[in-house]
Amino acid sequence: MIYNFRLKNSDLVEFNSEHCKIIIRKQHAAPEELTLARAESRILELLLMEPGAICSREAILEFAWDDRVVSAGSLNQSIFMLRNILGDGKDHEIVITVPRRGYRFNSDQVVAHSETAAASVEEPLQASMPSTIAPTASPDSRQGMGMAARFGYLAAAVLTVLSIWRLVAWYEPVSELHVAVIKQGKLSISAVGKSEQEVNKLKSDISGLVLPEESIKGQVFISRKGSRVNMSCIRTTGRTFNFEFQLQDEQLVNMLKKCVSE
């Protein structure tokens, strides 16, 4: 099944649920193709079957993991990953949390298939339009045109390489995310990073914290880039909270308290 919707930056997305693939058609760049993990693909498929309708956590768990039983933490982690892929990690305007009930896909983002098809053929049609003016060129000008064509081919090759590099660079953080879970009383903290070393360093920093176990409860996802920390929380009420901060400016313990406090 093919589904079409827009990201918050207005880029068009074509989602093929059968092959677990999405194609992002950017407005001023080459399209990008990404293969989703099975769980994220199944969740996105279920939400898009009826955009705007609320899907309970139980229904999502049963649909996304129909081959095995998993914990609620697996769903939280997959929603976290899916939102990051869709550029929805901060505001949650595409995959919307409905407190104590589940999740729904923002129906305002859904578009008709014809709109995506029109966008995909617009540039090829423009490129294939023949020129109505064919001036006669002298031998010298034809030689100059040959040089221009060679430079054009070279530029096209460079752009192709850059496009592939951008796709790989964008895809790697998603396909190679590492996660380590730290339990402290009723608080579950997931350290997320691009490499095992990065996650282990973050896990070490978190494990060394002294937290008042009786007052800090919920689920937290933490990732770090340099001194910049991103923290996403699911509170015991089901509400979510997300923010970024400079590690040297804020105490990690205080930010954890702020993140999960009611």
Score class of each variant (00 low, 15 high):
Val98Gly: 07
Arg100Gln: 15
Gly102Trp: 00
Phe105Gly: 09
Asn106Lys: 01
Asp108Asn: 10
Gln109Asp: 02
Val110Arg: 07
Glu115Phe: 04
Glu115Ile: 10
Thr116Asn: 07
Ala119Lys: 04
Ser120Thr: 01
Val121Gly: 04
Glu122Trp: 11
Gln126Ser: 08
Thr132His: 07
Pro139Arg: 11
Pro139Asp: 01
Phe151Asn: 10
Phe151Gln: 12
Tyr153Ala: 15
Leu154His: 13
Ala155Asn: 07
Ala156Pro: 00
Ala157Pro: 01
Val161Gly: 07
Leu162Gln: 13
Ala169Val: 11
Trp170Gln: 14
Glu172Trp: 08
Pro173Cys: 10
Val174Pro: 00
Ser175Phe: 03
Ser175Cys: 10
His178Ile: 07
Val179Gln: 07
Val179Tyr: 04
Val181Ser: 12
Ile182Ala: 07
Lys183Leu: 13
Leu187Tyr: 00
Ile189Asp: 03
Lys194Gln: 12
Lys194Ile: 08
Glu196Ser: 14
Asn200Ala: 15
Ser204Asn: 08
Ser204Val: 05
Ile206Asp: 07
Ser207Asn: 04
Ser207Met: 10
Leu211Gln: 03
Pro212Tyr: 06
Ser215Ala: 14
Ile216Arg: 04
Lys217Trp: 01
Gly218Trp: 00
Ile222Gln: 00
Ile222Ala: 05
Ser223Asp: 05
Lys225Arg: 11
Gly226Thr: 02
Arg228Asn: 11
Arg228Thr: 10
Ser232Glu: 02
